[in-house]
Amino acid sequence: TLFEALYDYEARTEDDLSFHKGEKFQILNSSEGDWWEVRSLTTGETGYIPSPYLAPV
């Protein structure tokens, strides 16, 4: 399942991933609570992002 960003987000740590509203992601790991490890389909980068900022496509 692909997810889309509902809002912009600016990374706060080196493990976070900055992204823009509308960017699409592949979920790599969603078992860590509200922070999911994802791969951006736009940039190819991986990192953690807050799951409340995402919605299924």
Rank of each mutant, 00 (worst) to 15 (best):
N29P: 02
Q26E: 14
F19G: 01
D34I: 12
G47L: 06
T1F: 12
N29S: 11
A5E: 01
Y9N: 03
E4N: 03
T43W: 01
G44K: 04
P50W: 15
L28Q: 02
K24L: 15
T43M: 01
D34H: 10
T43S: 11
L54H: 03
Y9I: 02
P56E: 09
S40P: 02
Y53D: 03
I27Q: 03
P50G: 06
T43G: 02
L41S: 04
L28W: 02
G44F: 07
S30Y: 12
A5I: 02
G47F: 06
S30P: 07
T43Q: 02
L17A: 02
E4K: 05
E23N: 06
Y53M: 13
E45C: 11
Y7P: 00
Q26I: 15
G22W: 04
Q26C: 10
E32I: 12
L6G: 03
T13C: 10
E45H: 12
D16W: 09
I27G: 01
E32H: 13
L6H: 04
I27D: 00
F3C: 05
Q26F: 13
R39K: 14
Y7C: 12
V38R: 00
Y9R: 05
Y48H: 09
S40Y: 04
T13N: 14
L17R: 03
D15H: 15
A11G: 13
P50S: 08
T42L: 14
D8L: 02
P50A: 09
K21A: 11
H20Y: 12
A55R: 13
K21N: 03
D8M: 02
T13Q: 11
E14Q: 11
L6K: 08
V57D: 06
L41W: 07
A5Y: 01
T13K: 13
T46E: 09
W36D: 01
N29E: 07
Q26Y: 14
W35K: 09
L28K: 02
G47A: 04
D34E: 13
F19R: 00
S18N: 07
V57I: 12
V57W: 09
V38D: 00
V38I: 02
I49A: 14
V38H: 00
Y7V: 11
E32D: 14
S40C: 04
D15I: 11
I27K: 08
I49F: 01
Y9E: 01
E14A: 11
T42A: 13
V38P: 00
S18F: 04
L28D: 01
A5P: 01
V57F: 08
S51H: 08
G33C: 08
E10D: 11
D8E: 07
D15G: 15
D8H: 05
T46M: 08
Y53C: 09
S31K: 11
G33V: 11
R39L: 14
E32P: 09
S30W: 13
K21Q: 09
A55Y: 10
F3H: 06
V57Q: 06
G22D: 03
K21W: 04
T1K: 12
L41P: 04
A55W: 10
L2R: 04
D16L: 11
T42K: 12
